[in-house]
């Protein structure tokens, strides 16, 4: 099972913040395709400018293999302070 977390405006686009995908897709690109197949607006938002992905709390660039139980977070542009 992969746990997917959405933050900021991505959660508004999706209408959810956290969802489990069973079984864990082998690669991040397969998870993205799965999400896009369910919700194309969310799929497009995940590819939008400034959106980063973190796998098991580490930022990743491009594609990466996912271990079973992976936590995948999609992070839109950040703003604190």
């Amino acid at each position: 099972m992969a746990r997917v977390l959405l933050f900021g405006r991505l959660a508004d686009v999706a209408g959810w913040r956290e969802r489990a995908y069973e079984p864990t897709p082998a690669r991040l690109c397969q998870l993205r395709a799965l999400i896009c197949g369910e919700d194309s607006a969310l799929g497009a938002a995940l590819e939008g400018p400034g959106v980063q992905a973190a796998v098991d709390k580490t930022l990743v660039r491009g594609d990466i293999a996912l271990k079973p139980g992976a936590e995948v977070a999609f992070l839109p542009p950040m703003s604190g302070g």
Partner: peptide, 26 residues
């Protein structure tokens, strides 16, 4: 540290104003 926190720290800020909610970006 403040310049970093404003634009590059993992926070997401939503404003709820008279025109409705809005996500703040750097």
């Amino acid at each position: 540290l403040m310049d970093y926190l404003k634009s590059d720290a993992p926070f997401w800020k939503k404003e709820f104003g008279p025109d409705g909610p809005r996500w703040v970006e750097p």
